[in-house]
Simulated assay, not measured.
Amino acid sequence: MTPSSRVRHTGLGERDRETPGLYSVKNPIAVCVTVLPSRDLVAEDFPGYVKTVPSGVVQLVDRQAEGWYYIRL
């Protein structure tokens, strides 16, 4: 697949402009780099406010230990 034929799978777009600040350092979105190849994605497919982490499970465990909640959409 060539970069020009890639489809963005983020599901984000117009909604971002309607809710400024929703996706930010205060409300981070993390994507596990391990799963990206299986979904035919690369980190560059996501907006700048989405960070990548080596392991999604470790990220969840660490954040929950800090008092965060996990919401699966």
Rank of each mutant, 00 (worst) to 15 (best):
A65R: 13
P47E: 15
P37W: 07
T2D: 15
L22Q: 05
G56Q: 08
Y23A: 00
Q64Y: 05
D40S: 02
I71W: 02
E14H: 01
S38Q: 15
Y49K: 01
R17K: 08
P54R: 00
F46G: 10
A43Q: 08
R39D: 13
P54L: 01
A43I: 10
T52V: 11
D62Q: 03
R8N: 14
V7A: 14
T34C: 13
V7M: 15
S4R: 04
G56M: 09
G13Q: 01
V58W: 09
D40C: 00
K51C: 00
R72M: 09
G56N: 02
V33E: 15
F46H: 11
S5W: 13
T2Y: 12
L12M: 15
D45A: 05
S4D: 12
M1V: 15
V25M: 12
A30D: 01
V53W: 09
V57S: 06
V61M: 04
W68L: 09
V7K: 15
Q59L: 04
R15W: 05
V61D: 07
P54F: 01
V35P: 04
Q59N: 03
A65H: 12
G48T: 06
P20G: 02
S5D: 15
W68D: 12
F46N: 07
Y70K: 02
R17S: 11
P54M: 00
V42P: 06
G11K: 01
G11L: 04
V61C: 00
A43F: 09
P28Q: 00
V58H: 03
L36H: 03
V25G: 15
S24K: 06
L12D: 14
Q64M: 13
V53R: 07
Q59Y: 08
A30F: 03
V31R: 05
T52M: 09
Y23H: 04
R15Y: 02
E14R: 04
V53Q: 06
E18C: 02
N27D: 01
Y23V: 03
S4V: 10
E44H: 13
T10K: 06
P37M: 13
R63V: 05
G11V: 07
P3Q: 07
R63P: 01
K26G: 09
T19S: 04
P20H: 01
D16A: 05
V50G: 07
R63E: 14
R6P: 07
R39H: 14
G11A: 03
A43G: 03
R15K: 07
V33R: 13
I71Q: 02
V58M: 07
P37Q: 11
R72W: 05
R72D: 11
P3D: 03
D16T: 00
R39S: 12
Y23Q: 00
E14G: 00
R39F: 14
